[in-house]
């Protein structure tokens, strides 16, 4: 750092006898600390880059049309990801169908209607708690409730059960995102609406919600992309790895991309590991597309606000 001349200033007090700040030593520590913080950040990003490059190198050669359109097979070269890919898209829809309205509704309730009563406070603590519950526990819940108790409705180990489970898993995330988006809407807008004689709900529906909607949508898409990458709850619910047909909503036997990847990783033959890498690339493409949509929405939303 700067070369310091300790005698740059003339002395007027006796302070120098009391203080001996070893400036060069302090600056050395400063430098070490600064460099360490950069090293930590760059390392995290380099690891991310390595991870992506490693997977790309392994998987790209395997990625072709045959891989996308084929059913599982005992031979790695003929195997494909059609069934898991369709399963993942199914899950996306079913999860969104349940999680979006329920999550947004609960968020609206907490932010706009609940006030500060006991129910609201319990709900709040509960949501905070649920967010930290491991996803595999949700799998156990889905297995016990949706697969077994609701068997006549869900058809057991089906896309329906899995979608419901994932919906519960991301519900807290959507509720929190909804609340944040609503909170970002200035309260003057609410007051303006209500001063015109509108009820709270009319104000929220006509003015607040349209303002908050892009933010809610962004949060929901990010939550859904998390659900799509989940593996553990699907295994517990009973996703299968050998599904030689296109899965249906309530039909027995479904798969999903992470399940298929997990299965291939676990095979001893190296050719299947290549398939796993190719499957990861497909999964990542789906996720990147979803994230890009979310970021696009967020940026457009922020641009409009200016």
């Amino acid at each position: 750092m700067t070369a310091t001349d300790p005698n740059a200033f003339s002395q007027s007090s006796s302070a120098e006898q009391h203080f001996s700040s070893d400036l060069s030593g302090r600056y050395r520590l400063d430098n070490i600390f600064r460099i360490a913080s950069w090293v930590a950040t760059v390392t995290a990003l380099v690891v991310l880059a390595f991870l992506l490059i490693d997977v790309l190198i392994d998987g790209i050669p395997r990625l072709d049309w045959q891989f996308i359109t084929s059913f599982p097979s005992r031979s790695a070269e003929r195997a494909g990801i059609l069934a898991p890919l369709v399963g993942t898209i199914w899950l996306l829809f079913v999860t969104a169908l349940f999680a979006f309205p329920i999550g947004v509704g609960a968020g609206i309730f907490l932010e706009e209607f609940a006030g500060d009563n006991l129910f609201a406070r319990i709900l709040e603590v509960n949501i905070g708690n649920l967010a930290a519950v491991p996803s595999i526990i949700y799998g156990l819940l889905g297995l016990a409730v949706f697969v077994r108790v609701f068997l006549p409705i869900t058809g057991g180990r089906t896309v329906f059960s899995a979608g419901l489970t994932l919906a519960l898993l991301i519900l807290p995330v959507i509720i929190v995102a909804t609340r944040e988006a609503l909170r970002a809407v200035p309260s003057s807008l609410r007051q303006a609406g209500m001063a015109l004689g509108a009820t709270r709900w009319q104000t929220v529906r006509e003015h607040v919600l349209p303002q908050a909607f892009p933010g809610i949508l962004t949060g929901t898409i990010l939550a859904l992309s998390r659900a799509i990458g989940e593996t553990a709850p699907l295994i517990v619910i009973g996703a299968q790895t050998f599904v030689p047909f296109v899965p249906s909503f309530r039909g027995t036997g479904f798969s999903a991309l992470p399940i298929q990847i997990f299965n291939w990783v676990g095979r001893p033959q190296a050719e299947f590991h290549v398939n796993a890498a190719a499957g990861i690339i497909v999964l990542m493409i789906v996720l990147v597309a979803m994230n890009a949509t979310a970021i696009y929405l967020r940026n457009r939303f922020q641009a409009e606000k200016m």
């Binding site: 990010l222 990458g229 997990f262 990783v265 990542m284």
Partner: peptide, 20 residues
């Protein structure tokens, strides 16, 4: 960029741990 790292499915991290 850090948040992208947070969004990588854990099955991908598993692959990375085992094979890299």
């Amino acid at each position: 960029a850090l948040e992208i790292l947070a969004g990588v499915p854990t099955v991908v991290f598993g692959y990375f741990a085992l094979f890299f």
